[in-house]
Simulated assay, not measured.
Amino acid sequence: MKRAARLNAILDLLAASGEVTVDELVDRFGASPATTRRDLDTLAEQRLLTRTHGGAVAQTVAYELPIRYKSHLRTHEKASIAQAAADLVSPGMVVGLSGGTTTTAIAAALAAREDLAADGGVTVVTNAVNIAAQLATRPDIKVVVTGGVIHSRTYELVGPFVEQLLRGVRLDIAFLGVNGMDAAAGATTQDEREAAVNRMMAERARRAVVVTDGSKLGVEAFSAVGGPELFHTVITDRGAEPALVEALRTAGYVVLLA
């Protein structure tokens, strides 16, 4: 396993259990004890966990591997999901994009569509500054950026200023990235501020869509965003575990496999 993937997996394990030991990580990932300790030290230096004797504990509920690392994980799956999401967008639509690596891939897929220039192009409303910068040079895409306080690890704007702007807009479709998507718990994130923004963006949309790769299905993160009453559709990859996909459908979601 490459180091970036291993770091992400360590944080995912912390999200589930709250603490890990070096021995447990060595058994699970096959890295040496020295390498594992260096991994934990690296994450501790970034204040993503707290080191303990023989392991580590979760430092806060808001830890999340920085987007610059996560963008290199499961890139094929995210590209497929992004294309399926972009195919749901028609010229003239107002599109909401939360932050995250999958929604960043959706922004790239939208930017590649020359047909969206018809009927005045599309409008993208986003709280992710990296997505806004990515689309800013496209004259056929109007970019609306929410205000707010920037989250240093995800590049998302959060807080009351975001919610103030979202109350005044109406979206045709919104694509929301999550940290977990479970049939019983619904969509969840590690950060309660991001969950609040995602929830409001979904509420302001005629159609709200969760976009997530299969590794996050069956996962429950800290803060709830919403369930099938809020999200009409889930787009995930074809490698997702069939039982988890079926559980989502039974719970009332329309699941599209990309």
Rank of each mutant, 00 (worst) to 15 (best):
L244K: 14
D191C: 10
M181Q: 04
L88C: 12
L248C: 07
R37T: 10
M200H: 01
T154C: 07
L176H: 06
E156N: 09
R249I: 09
T146R: 02
M93G: 08
V22M: 02
M181F: 02
V26K: 09
M200E: 11
M200R: 07
L165C: 11
A86M: 06
G18M: 03
V22N: 05
D119A: 15
R113P: 00
I131D: 00
V197S: 03
D27E: 14
V61Q: 15
N127F: 05
I141M: 11
A112D: 13
L88V: 07
L116Y: 03
A62P: 07
N198F: 12
P66A: 10
E77D: 15
L49S: 01
T21N: 05
T212Y: 03
V169L: 14
A247D: 11
R28K: 10
S17L: 00
A111R: 14
A240S: 15
T36E: 09
V26S: 08
V225H: 01
A117L: 09
A9R: 01
L13F: 06
H72L: 10
M201W: 04
V197F: 06
V245F: 02
V61T: 15
L49A: 04
L43R: 04
Y155Q: 12
A4G: 01
V254K: 08
N198Y: 12
V94W: 10
V122I: 15
I235N: 05
L256F: 02
L176V: 15
L171C: 05
A34D: 11
L49V: 07
A184W: 00
G239W: 12
S71L: 00
A202S: 10
E246S: 11
A9S: 09
I131R: 06
D140C: 11
Y253C: 05
E45Q: 14
R206T: 10
